[in-house]
Amino acid sequence: MAMDVVDYEIFGNEMQYVEVELDPGEAAIGEAGAMMLMEDGIQMDTIFGDGSAQQGGLFGKLLGAGKRLLTGESLFTTIFHNEGRNKSRVAFAAPYPGKIVPVDLTTVGGTLICQKDSFLCAARGVSLGIAFNRKLGTGLFGGEGFIMQKLEGDGMAFVHAGGTLAVRDLAPGEVLRVDTGCVVAFQPSVDFDIQYVGKLKSALFSGEGLFFATLRGPGRVWLQSLPLSRLANRIVMAAPAAGGQSRGEGSLLGGLLDGDNE
């Protein structure tokens, strides 16, 4: 499969974007809505499916689109070609505070399993598929559902992690227990399962939810410290419209003098 080799640079600290340098004729695919800027010479094109060479014919394209529907993504992928005669750059921005994780798929064996909405962009030729976990528990109780996204190919892929990124290398047999929402990506060599917390008291009152994800080595796992859902929860809870208060902002009269709260 023809895979485009891309150079990249990541900017920013907590709200990042990645600039991908495309040689003439090279291309990158991006998640719909992630594009931030593109230089002269870059042409944007929307294609049905994911643009990998694997799917020939209308049926293959429909199948690819169906898979994307299942993982909750849009049917179309945007592909960015460099049609000029010079190197040009296109940038993709992360949708919420966090870190962009560059993964060279060759170093992880050609496949990466990642959370459904974490994909940001990749070199053309990387195929976006779905991976089903056949364990019943994972399907019913995994925060991310039993369908995850599978990135296949041998180029660069960029996924996005909320908050701070943690990369852990698990030795054969080593087990790491993780909040189900904190898993961003892992190598397919890692065994992914969902485990009940075990104690009723913890399940009800610890606030950690009823289930852990257990990741069993060998292989590399990428974790995020702040899943978007958690951040969104706090924001909604603090919103004045939902009865939140602007406490802790140093206002003497608890927000009375705050012009914003009129």
Binding site: T107, V108, G109, D169, L170, A171, P172, Q187, S189, G217, P218, G219, R220
Partner: peptide
Amino acid sequence: RLFGPGLPAAG
């Protein structure tokens, strides 16, 4: 794919 002591963590 082989994982073990002295090998890359990603195998």
